[in-house]
Computed example of a mutant assay.
Amino acid sequence: MRETCQTRSSKSLYISLLILIFVLLESVSGRNLTFAVLIYRHGDRSPIESYPNGLHKESEWPQGFGQLTTLGMQQHHELGRYIKKRYSGFLSPIYKREEIYIQSTDIDRTIMSAQVNLAGLFPPTTSEIWNPQILWQPIPIYVVPKSFRPKLRFPIFDCPRYKKLLRETMTSQEFRAKIQPYKKFLKTMAVYSGYDAKSLRNLDTFKLWHVQDTLHCESIHNFTLPTWATEDVRATLGELTVLSLSSLFGIYKREEKARLQGGLLVKDILENISNATKYPGKRKMLIYSAHDTTLGALQMALNTYNERLPPYAACQIFELYQEDTGDHTIEMYFRNDTSRDPYPITLPGCSFACPLQKFADLVSPILVDDWESECRR
């Protein structure tokens, strides 16, 4: 039996309707990324300071101590390009001021890292190009002064209760057990570095950290190292620096320290994420440019710290999703290796895609309403 034109037309209409229904179902099913928060460490820099017996002076570094290097610029440009790729289809391909907000600590290297990161994230195109020879465009970065309700620079020593907790940490059984294997090494390092052993052991002086950091920076940039700074010595210094970071924000009374340190940043992030669910709008991303101790304080507060120093341009990611049920979930990732995808991080007590309300409930013990009062306890 031959098919009439009307039959063919009806069949075509039926197929078209099926395709339309399928497309509509696809568009309303699944989950959608609705907001993202990124916190990254600045890029490679010169040492913060030298140690008494150090071989090299500040004048040997092009911009002096604590400054972003050209390698650090390259690292953050790469991270900016990665962010652009990861969020293509979410962020607009061109810079739109209402979509993204960038904050930085009031330190040269974090401000400059944010600048070069944005150069990789939003290279100017078409009408954005104001000079064909300079493929860069100015994007605002909001600097957070250290004195302004601190939430990006940690540790915050201007807190009596926290300083008391640090003193207790250094005499606690937990800390003593961890430092005991290194006592002989610390005495040797005191001779090599020119610091006394007590200064190297104390957490709030950062002297040991500066010895390790100076050698690390010098090795990256092919400076001559002292003969005693073997790979084994530098590896042990790295272990002690991790111990120092862990001690500042954990090991002893981690949760109370988190309330006075990293919990401030957790609270700020959670408030921004919650606002994104209550008042959905054009803002899609919040970025913080900060430090290794910022990431350490944040991860220790969340109890997700991996017992490693966050490398240059390491990036902690929070992503807010709206599920097909209408509920919201948070996923966390940590990018500390450019050769692979970011590591997924699960908040203890929750699933990887953690329901927003459960996430808020789990972190509630480290959130404070009156930080000043907590510090005076």
Rank of each mutant, 00 (worst) to 15 (best):
R2N: 13
E3S: 13
C5T: 11
V23C: 13
S27E: 14
R31P: 00
A36E: 03
I39P: 05
I39W: 05
G43S: 07
S50G: 15
G54E: 07
Q63I: 03
G64I: 03
G64P: 04
L68P: 03
L68V: 03
G72E: 00
Q75K: 02
R86D: 03
K96I: 11
D108W: 05
I111W: 04
S113K: 02
Q115L: 09
F122N: 02
T125M: 14
S127C: 02
L152R: 02
R153D: 07
R153H: 07
F154L: 12
C159W: 02
L165Y: 04
L166I: 04
K178D: 00
K198N: 13
S199G: 06
L200A: 11
F206W: 07
H216R: 15
H216E: 15
L260W: 09
G263H: 05
L265D: 01
A276H: 03
G281R: 08
M285C: 12
Y288G: 02
L295E: 03
A297W: 04
R308M: 14
A313G: 08
I317G: 06
Q322S: 10
E323L: 14
E323P: 06
H328N: 14
R335G: 00
R335L: 15
P342S: 09
P355D: 05
Q357V: 08
K358F: 03
A360G: 12
D361H: 11
V363C: 08
S364D: 05
S364I: 01
I366S: 00
V368F: 02
W371P: 00
